[in-house]
């Protein structure tokens, strides 16, 4: 499989489509983006995608917006970033404008409530699938530090509800120390 040609219109339309279907908050956009840009289009490597997600996490603002800005910038510079953030913002703008007009009817409809409830099960499966793939990429390198970090970070966030920024700062700092330690080892005769 070869990479598809890099086009501004393809970037805009891909992000627009993904944003229109990211039910359930920012994290759902991550699996969709990874699938589209790493697997289908092959514009970014899996590892770079993870870097971008980590950077998007460390900045304030919606994850979906941040991820699309950094992805657009990495691919096509400032114009890529603008196209990509527009693509992300347009669907919620349209959908919510429509809904705020027909708000009462929308809320009371039994079909819509059942549909939205069952869609969550699909969303959960999509996230489990992507976590499975990403975690396998980390464990198959057979290095202890990243595996321990991954498990510890999960326990800290999910069970102990530690602030996400603290977790990211701590993990980034440990990674930095690890890199410094190995470069010191190399420097010694």
């Amino acid at each position: 499989m070869t990479a598809k040609p890099l086009r501004l219109s393809t970037l805009f339309l891909s992000v627009l489509k993904i944003s229109a279907f990211t039910f359930g908050g920012g994290y759902v956009i991550v699996p969709l983006m990874r699938k589209r840009f790493s697997e289908d289009l092959q514009w970014v490597k899996e590892e770079e995608m993870l870097d971008m997600i980590a950077i998007a996490q460390s900045a304030p603002g919606p994850i979906a917006v941040n991820t699309s800005i950094i992805l657009g910038y990495r691919l096509l510079g400032i114009k890529g970033a603008l196209a990509s953030v527009l693509g992300t913002a347009i669907p919620p703008l349209l959908v919510l404008t429509l809904i705020s007009m027909f708000y009462e009817a929308f809320r009371a409809n039994r079909w819509i409530a059942a549909l939205l409830g069952a869609m969550r099960a699909g969303v959960a499966a999509v996230i489990v699938d992507v976590v499975w793939t990403m975690a396998a990429n980390i464990t198959k390198k057979r290095k202890a530090t990243p595996i321990i970090l991954m498990i510890a970070a999960f326990i800290a966030v999910f069970i102990f509800k530690v602030n996400i920024i603290l977790v990211l700062l701590f993990c980034g700092f440990l990674g930095f120390l690890d890199a410094m330690r190995s470069s010191l080892k190399e420097a010694k005769p």
Binding site: I127, V167, C171
Partner: peptide
């Protein structure tokens, strides 16, 4: 690169937690 190698597993953990 060291900082990023620490952030990557954390990113996976955050997605897992939201999932």
């Amino acid at each position: 690169a060291g900082v990023l190698s620490g952030l990557r597993p954390a990113a996976v953990a955050l997605i897992a937690s939201a999932g």
